[in-house]
Amino acid sequence: MVEIEWGEWAGHLRESAANEADWNAAVAAGLVRDSDMVAVDVGCGGGGMAKALAAAMPSGTTVVAIDADPDVLEQAREHTAGAVRCELASMDDGAEPLRKAIDAPADLIWASASVHHAADQQAAIDALASLLAPGGRLALAESGLPARSLPWDLGIGEPGLELRLDLAQDKWFAAMRDSLPGTVPMPYGWTDALTRAGLVEVGTRSVLTESSAPLGAEQQERVVTQFQHRVERLKPETGEHGQGHGHGHGHIEYQEWLSAEDLAVWEQLLDPEGEHYLGRRTDLAVLSVRSIHIGHAPR
């Protein structure tokens, strides 16, 4: 059995918040309206989007960052440096703790890779939707397309290594969902979930991020570091996962997410002293598509 302690990942979430500053700023600028008075980041992680929302919102308005883990929230508090109000609350506890944390109807609620950690995802979406002011928007950053950074054939191991890493994460994620206490299946898509929550004008916008090879030194290091985190989370001794951050604790039975052969290849690719180290390749790239599903509260 493996316990998921998200406080241990607080530093990594803070790092991700800093690394994604440009993406967050661009998305926040497209979401915020001049008339918005209250914006909320639920499951805020390192506070990256909360900080971006605070920069995009008109002066004299309020941004609230909410997370269920106190260590994670502390990282968000430091990252946002007083620009937002940070509150401890969990979606799993229903709407009222969130309502008290926000203390006003919200014009915009953002939740990125957090609702999928709620035991009952539809109930969590229902709760978030109930916090909106008339005409307010709920934006869920969930799913998209798997990121691609590696060539199919790396000259070591069986080709298709990155595809198998995605598959391993998907299997872990399914087991994580099954292990949540009181887990409830949601056998339909995010837009259906927003509609079932009573929201209207529901739709999806997807954001493409692309950097062609060769990458600059800083971005190259960032890609390698991301692979290090993803592989470490799937190793037998950790059993952690690589899809966003969670908002509670659970257990999963260990199984072989990555084959021994693939694990051995990853160890070589991520060894700075090894001949196959990814950080010295000139053909790494960045291609990802992240989807944002948006619903509006009726006026």
Rank of each mutant, 00 (worst) to 15 (best):
L199I: 08
G274D: 09
S288H: 13
G46T: 03
V27H: 01
T191W: 04
L165I: 10
A111M: 06
E221R: 15
L150F: 07
H12D: 03
Q219I: 11
M1E: 05
A101K: 02
A81D: 14
V224E: 05
P272Q: 05
Q220N: 12
E253P: 03
W9P: 00
V27F: 02
E218S: 11
H247V: 14
E78G: 11
E8Q: 14
W152Q: 08
V32H: 02
G43D: 04
V224R: 01
V224L: 10
L284T: 02
L199F: 02
H245E: 05
P159T: 09
G239Q: 05
H247Y: 10
P187S: 06
V223G: 01
P70R: 08
T204S: 10
Y188E: 05
A147V: 12
V289M: 13
G189K: 09
I109F: 02
A174R: 14
S59E: 10
Q255G: 04
S90W: 03
W6E: 04
D271G: 11
I109E: 02
T204C: 15
L208P: 02
G94W: 11
G136Y: 00
E87G: 00
A21Q: 15
G239L: 06
V286N: 06
E218P: 01
E261Q: 13
G198F: 06
T62M: 01
E275M: 10
L88K: 05
L208S: 04
W110H: 15
I294M: 12
G7I: 10
P97E: 04
G279C: 07
M57Q: 11
Q255P: 00
D103A: 04
L53Q: 05
A193D: 04
T195R: 12
Q169T: 10
W257I: 04
L180M: 13
R77D: 06
R85I: 07
P272N: 06
I292R: 02
D92E: 09
L98E: 02
A106Q: 02
T61E: 03
E74P: 00
A111K: 01
M1L: 12
A10M: 09
Q255D: 10
V286M: 07
L161F: 03
E96K: 08
G182L: 12
A297M: 08
M1I: 07
I66H: 00
A106E: 03
K51N: 07
A81W: 06
V200W: 01
A174D: 08
I102M: 01
M49H: 03
S112M: 11
G274C: 08
D67W: 00
L140A: 03
G136T: 01
V42Q: 02
T191M: 14
R137S: 08
Q226H: 14
T238L: 15
S90A: 14
P146V: 14
N24D: 11
S149T: 15
S143H: 11
L234Q: 06
H12R: 14
E162C: 03
D262E: 06
E275H: 05
S16Y: 09
E275Q: 11
